[in-house]
Simulated scan of single mutants.
Amino acid sequence: MINLTENAAAHISNYLKNRGKGEGIRVGVKTSGCSGLAYVLEFVDEVDTHDQMFVQHGVNVFVDPKSLVYLDGMEMDYVKNGLNEGFEFNNPNKKGECGCGESFTV
């Protein structure tokens, strides 16, 4: 399961509303960076029947089966810290990350 905080769900809902379309957001991983994996976020306009779907605070979150192995139990938050803002991933499966924080390993 992927958990969204209320802040993350509100941010995603606003983006979907401004886009005028979309079934939700897909969260996944891809091979990248010096540690191995990086998070991928994309809007879902057409549901893939293979995806697992979770509903959090009224937002549909889709995860493909291969990514779910690495993301199960993760919490996504949306934070503003001074001039910086963005999603933060609290992933209990993560064992380490690269120095720049762009990729992680499990």
Rank of each mutant, 00 (worst) to 15 (best):
N14H: 14
N14T: 11
L16H: 04
L16T: 00
N18M: 13
R19W: 14
R19D: 10
R19Y: 13
G20M: 09
G20C: 11
K21C: 13
K21Y: 15
K21F: 15
G22F: 03
G22V: 00
E23G: 10
G24L: 02
G24E: 02
G24P: 05
I25V: 06
I25M: 04
I25C: 01
R26N: 12
R26K: 12
G28F: 04
G28S: 05
V29K: 05
K30N: 10
T31C: 06
G33T: 03
G36I: 02
G36S: 02
A38Y: 00
A38P: 01
A38F: 00
Y39F: 07
Y39G: 01
V40Q: 01
L41P: 04
F43W: 09
F43P: 04
F43K: 10
V44E: 00
D45S: 08
E46D: 11
E46T: 14
V47C: 12
V47T: 14
D48N: 09
T49Q: 15
T49N: 15
H50T: 14
D51W: 09
D51G: 07
Q52H: 15
F54M: 12
F54H: 11
V55Q: 13
V55G: 11
Q56F: 06
H57K: 00
N60E: 05
N60Q: 04
V61H: 03
V61I: 06
F62R: 04
F62V: 07
D64N: 08
D64H: 02
D64T: 03
P65R: 09
P65Q: 04
K66F: 15
L68K: 12
V69R: 08
V69T: 06
Y70H: 14
Y70V: 13
Y70W: 15
L71V: 11
L71C: 09
D72M: 15
D72T: 13
D72Y: 13
G73Y: 07
G73A: 10
G73Q: 04
M74N: 06
M76R: 03
M76G: 06
D77E: 02
Y78S: 00
